[in-house]
Design a protein around this nucleic acid. Structure first.
Length: 493
RNA sequence: GCGCCGGUAGCUCAGCAGGCCAGAGCGACCGCCUCUUAAGCGGUAGGUCGUGGGUUCGAGCCCCACCCGGCGCACCA
């Protein structure tokens, strides 16, 4: 490090004065000769005898910089050209200049090394492609893989747009507990943890649903939450154990209001964030424009299996109906689970273009309202595209008597071996007994939606730090939780 | 959980008929070059070939176990 050509690091160099987030957008628009001051990361460095070219990168993109012998103090030239390496953070002051090759470039007059990079960057041409490395070292992936960087910028823009849309419709953003006494609001296996101070086992939420409904019961007529849910299930390209869900509830709305609203929201995001309503996803084009087709759940199951769920209403009959048919191998511990399996095996794989799926059997969702016209079905819909369930929504059940019966049925199914049932929450039922307005709620999987819009084929690519198995010797969990809980770590907020 | 594929230098990869097989490109380091766009040229360093066993005169290569990952299946949004 005693090499005299290495510029001294200047840790106290003023951080202000440099424009950040403006490299590609603004600097390149300035006329030649105009003074600019920029900070960023050196991502490429080509030295010649009397000139050096490099790329300076910040959040907004890249711009070329050049250090020319004729334009800098003679005693600095060697230091500024030989002393830098790819990965260094530099601040530069210079003038806009257009090279012979026509590229807008900052001709450097002054340069400050803001911090050094000690480890080398990934291959400048091939980048970093190993999926494990990209996830574990996301900071490198973001620096060298433009597609990845764009995906996360899109994700943020999408969420910002969601908030603007809902805020504009009188919704209130709220936060509800992640640690819950009963895992409810969806059918999934929960993560279990332990609360030391209360000495109680708690569940990480699988859904915020019943808490958001309590808020509507409390007079907050339109609420939404964007947050993490946790489901202790398998990993694959469309499932993560920790995933982000948008969920909203609106008093005096029914599921039809939500069908209209979600389509408007999707189209607003496509217009404002993506710029087109017809997106390419792998080999297919997904068309979100105009009205979306409406498919009836029981019609679709009948078409693909021959079983009419309007007639076949209990587990034994359904098993009997399947016997001898092409789907005889399918079985599940409850009627609802078996119906769901039929749909997922035989119907959903064919739902590629965006559509509304409506008319689900009443047994499927214990928190949804029965249809007045046909009590065997729910006032419910899903939005499916690319065979992914993006949205689930329904008119909410607000009748405490019906609700209690349906949750007790869930408990019975659980005792008979269906471990993906909803737990009974006495507190929630009590809230309903005090009275809830008619309402409709909706859930949207943000990760999946982002993946579709950014042509990502696994959810891991739209989550900054997806969960991976710990490497040997890496960040071992702390022992002695009692000590930690006991001392003053609990921040007084 | 099961099946298939993979793990070799910081990154991207080659080497697999077991014996000149420890290699390339980029990056890093040293030198030359005033218009590069994966710049060019010359030189240097860098790897217990995922881990542990086994077979063999000899293992990156074959066998076994394990670890980590990818894809598919199963379960779930």
């Amino acid at each position: 490090m005693s090499d005299s050509t290495v510029p001294e690091q200047q840790p106290h160099a003023p951080a202000s004065g440099y424009q950040v987030d403006t490299l590609s957008d603004q600097a390149k628009a300035k006329p030649d000769g105009e003074r600019v001051q920029l900070a960023g990361r050196l991502m490429l460095w080509r030295r010649f005898g009397g000139v050096a070219f490099g790329h300076l990168q910040d959040q907004s993109g890249r711009i070329q910089i050049a250090v020319q012998r004729a334009n800098v103090p003679p005693e600095r030239f060697k230091e500024w050209t030989k002393g830098l390496r790819v990965g260094d953070f530099v601040g530069v002051t210079g003038e806009m200049w257009t090279t012979d090759k026509g590229e807008k470039t900052v001709s450097v007059r002054d340069l400050t090394l803001l911090n050094r990079s000690m480890a080398s960057m990934p291959d400048k041409w091939k980048g970093m492609s190993n999926p494990e490395a990209r996830a574990r070292k996301r900071y490198l992936d973001l620096l060298v893989n433009e597609a990845s960087r764009q995906r996360f910028l899109t994700r943020s823009a999408l969420i910002t747009r969601v908030r603007a849309f809902l805020d504009g419709q009188g919704f209130l953003e709220v936060e509800t507990p992640i640690l819950q006494a009963a895992a409810s609001g969806a059918a999934a296996r929960p993560f279990i943890t332990h609360h030391n101070a209360l000495d109680e086992d708690l569940y990480l939420r699988i859904s915020p649903e019943t808490y958001l409904k309590r808020l509507v019961a409390g007079g907050l007529d339109r609420v939404y939450e964007i947050g993490r849910n946790f489901r202790n299930e398998g990993i694959d390209t469309s499932h993560l154990q920790e995933f982000t869900m948008l969920e909203w509830y609106a008093a005096y709305w029914d599921y039809r209001d939500n069908m209209r609203t979600i389509r408007e929201l999707f189209q607003a995001i496509l217009d404002d964030v993506i710029g087109t309503r017809v997106i390419r996803y792998g080999e297919v084009e997904l068309n979100f424009d105009g009205e979306w087709p409406e498919l009836d759940y029981r019609d679709e199951v009948q078409k693909s299996t021959g079983v009419d769920l309007r007639e076949v209403r209990d587990l034994e009959s359904l098993r009997a109906a399947l016997k001898g048919g092409p789907h005889a191998e399918l079985d599940a511990p409850s009627y609802a689970a078996l119906v769901d399996m039929l749909y997922k095996k035989t119907v959903r794989p064919n739902l590629i273009q965006p559509c509304f799926l409506v008319g689900h059997p009443v047994e499927l969702v214990p928190l949804a309202r029965r249809s007045d016209a046909d009590p065997s079905r729910l006032d419910m819909f899903q939005v499916v595209a690319n065979s992914w369930e993006l949205v689930k929504a329904y008119s909410e059940l607000v009748d405490p008597v019906d609700q209690r019966e349906r949750l007790e049925e869930q408990a019975r199914m659980r005792s008979e071996g269906d471990d993906e049932t909803m737990m009974l929450e006495e507190d929630f039922l009590e809230a309903m007994e005090h009275g809830m307005p008619p309402m409709s709620g909706l859930g949207l999987g943000i990760d999946r939606f982002t993946a579709l819009l950014t042509d990502a084929h696994t959810l891991r690519d739209v989550v900054l730090f997806p969960q991976l198995r710990r490497h040997e010797g890496q960040d071992e969990g702390q022992d002695e939780p009692e000590t930690e809980a006991a001392d003053g770590e609990s921040a007084e907020q």
